[in-house]
Amino acid sequence: MVTEALNDGDRRNFLIKLTSVVGGAGVAATCVPFVASMNPSSDVLAKAETEVDLTNITPGGMHTVAWQGKPVFILHRTPEQIKASTESNGGLQPEADSNRVQKPEWLVVIGVCTHMGCVPNKEGPGWECHCHGSQYDDSGRVIRGPAPKNLEVPPYRFVADNKIVIGKA
């Protein structure tokens, strides 16, 4: 077998190096579509924003919508509920009600208990989580543990008087 033509000088050859770099870049670029295909597809991303029509929620009524697969509570608060919420600053994690709403009559919170991720039930004033007994008021603030934090307020905006889009502030 002819082997004498092989020598290590080849390795230092500029053309071979350049070609390897260009080829390697191509292989790396080819990986992009494969990796990207595992990211959320456009129909999943479309769920990043949820549009909610508020017309049919009566004062005192609550509506649960799915946003990115999670329940979001939309509470149409009565003047009494607003009054009760603004008078206190909550319990374990004090926060003014005005920081948690854009319009006092509409409370929008993610319905996932900040303790272990159960979905709290609307009971009496506020919510109670049946998993471990945490309680939240009508502003979604935790007033009894073991939950450590208030219910999270998702980013949302009013696109009309009676329409909100959850997902982008």
């Binding site: 002819v2 033509a5 080849d10 050859n13 053309l15 071979i16 350049l18 070609t19 260009v22 080829g23 191509g26």
Partner: peptide
Amino acid sequence: GYLFVLTLMLYFVKNQIWAKLK
């Protein structure tokens, strides 16, 4: 475009390597 450039380069490398063969 990329494949054209790469193939051209591979062609030159191929010629270079094979030229050493007597």
